[in-house]
């Protein structure tokens, strides 16, 4: 397993509604390192800043201060169109609520990340079918997402995250709405991705995840800061 750094934050700070009465510091001078090909878990209670850090790492939002270095490039100040390009090429996202478009078909949901790319209709269809087949939901491809069970929706969300063959998978509370059986299925899928050499970053407060053997490192967070590891205390 390689120990190359793929993402690094230096003093990343995220303040929502700065200078307003409801100003909120979500991240306070956070520096973390994510290694390529590893599964890293950001753990902590609700409101600890996990999702904010995940958003910044995944180029979904920009830090108010500090650096975010993705593959040796500081992306914190890049214009939106570059961030879009990075999201499209490097990241696959699995959201807490799946964030699927419920009224369109399974195959259209999975194909959406490919629409802005150069792929033609035939190629998209082929890739989508292959991906759905690998998750055992090819037969459901024409159904609307809202007709699927929670577990099937989760698989669609993962298929959509992987359709662009991203290097880094980001998952935000992926087991929050799953029963134990489905959660175990998901962890097996994520473990398989790590085995394939993908970098997986998960924000969670579910012990089932951060105690799972496929997890390489855990970063604990509280009140927008990194908590010292036990051996550092």
């Amino acid at each position: 397993m390689t120990q190359d750094t793929i993402i690094r934050t230096q003093g990343a700070t995220k303040i929502y509604n700065p200078t307003l009465p409801d100003e909120m510091v979500a991240l306070d001078n956070v520096s973390v390192t994510i290694h390529q090909g590893q599964a890293t878990v950001l753990k902590g209670p609700s409101g600890s800043g996990k999702t904010s850090l995940l958003s910044i790492i995944g180029c979904m939002s920009r830090p108010t201060a500090g650096k975010v270095i993705v593959k040796d490039r500081d992306v914190a100040k890049l214009p939106e169109r570059y961030l879009t390009h990075i999201r499209r090429k490097i990241f696959g996202f699995i959201f807490q609520q799946f964030n699927l478009i419920r009224d369109i078909s399974v195959q259209e949901n999975v194909a959406l990340p490919l629409y802005p790319a150069d792929a033609g209709f035939a190629e998209i269809r082929k890739r989508v079918h292959t991906m759905l087949d690998s998750f055992g939901i090819l037969s459901k491809r024409k159904l609307k997402v809202k007709k699927l069970s929670g577990g099937e929706q989760q698989r669609v969300a993962i298929a959509r995250a992987l359709i662009n063959e991203p290097e880094i998978i980001i998952a935000d509370e992926p087991t929050a709405h799953l029963d134990r059986e489905l959660a175990a299925d998901l962890l097996n899928i994520l473990a398989g991705l790590v085995r394939e050499g993908k970098t997986v970053i998960i924000a969670t407060h579910d012990p089932l995840i951060f105690e799972h053997p496929f997890v390489d490192s855990t970063i604990a967070m509280r009140n927008g800061k990194i908590e010292p590891q036990p051996e550092e205390q």
Partner: peptide, 8 residues
């Protein structure tokens, strides 16, 4: 969602 999955 579209922005997050790579739409410009």
């Amino acid at each position: 969602i579209l922005k997050a999955i790579g739409w410009d």
